Amino acid sequence: MTDFLHGTVHETPEDFQAALRSDPAVLTLWENLTPLGRNEFICWVEDAKQPATRQRRIARSREEMLEGKKRPCCWAGCIHRTDKAPSRWQQAVLIDKKAKEGA
């Protein structure tokens, strides 16, 4: 098995790798994504709180790549990157999330 390509911050978890490897066309699309694009998909999958949501996101990631998308649809973006500040939208999401958790 060849080395698996990961993101800039996140490593691809085993369940996501298995889903990507299960279809050669999807694996090729994954390998052709930029490291930042791969990172966004990984972060989106990893951010799921429930196992069912995680499985839906893995399936949707495969579908979106087959549709030609380079990043997950409707995702604020990885907040774990240290090479740039969070966008205004990410900051708003984080503030809203913290406010709800504190309530």
Rank of each mutant, 00 (worst) to 15 (best):
Q50E: 15
R21M: 12
A103Y: 14
D47R: 06
R56W: 02
L5Y: 15
A18C: 09
A85D: 15
K100Y: 11
L29P: 03
G77Y: 05
L20G: 04
S61I: 05
R88F: 11
F4K: 00
L20C: 02
R56E: 13
E40W: 04
R57E: 01
E46M: 14
K70M: 10
P72V: 01
I42F: 03
R57A: 05
M65C: 08
N39S: 10
G7D: 01
K84G: 01
R62H: 04
P24V: 11
D47Y: 07
N39D: 15
T82C: 14
T2W: 11
A52Y: 13
V45P: 06
R21H: 13
L33G: 02
R81Q: 14
K49Y: 10
E64F: 01
P72G: 02
R88E: 13
V45I: 12
L94V: 12
D47Q: 10
G102Q: 14
H6P: 04
C78K: 05
E40C: 01
R81M: 03
R57K: 02
R21S: 09
A59P: 00
I58L: 07
T82G: 13
L5I: 05
C43V: 04
Q17D: 03
T34Q: 02
L20T: 03
I58V: 09
C78F: 06
E14C: 06
D96H: 14
E63A: 11
G37W: 07
R60Y: 04
F41S: 04
T34I: 04
A59F: 03
G68S: 05
K49T: 08
A76G: 14
R38I: 00
S87Y: 08
E63C: 04
D83H: 09
W75F: 15
A85Y: 05
C78R: 02
R88V: 11
R38K: 00
K69T: 00
E67I: 00
W75K: 02
I58S: 04
A92R: 14
G102I: 14
V93E: 10
A19W: 01
M1I: 08
L20N: 01
Q90R: 01
E11W: 00
N39F: 01
E14G: 04
H6F: 09
L94D: 05
Q17W: 06
A99H: 12
L36K: 11
D15Y: 00
T12M: 05
L27A: 12
R38G: 00
N39M: 03
F41A: 07
E67W: 08
S22I: 07
P24Y: 09
W44Y: 02
K69W: 14
E64N: 06
K70I: 08
L66G: 01
D3F: 08
Q90M: 05
Q91V: 13
H6K: 07
E64L: 12
P35R: 12
K100A: 14
K84N: 07
A48M: 07
S61D: 06
A99I: 15
D3W: 03
T34R: 11
Q50G: 06
T12C: 05
I79G: 12
G77T: 03
A85C: 10
P13H: 04
C43F: 11
A92M: 15
I79M: 11
D47F: 09
S61P: 05
P51M: 00
E31L: 07
F4A: 02
Q90K: 07
R57M: 06
L29N: 06
K49I: 10
D83L: 08
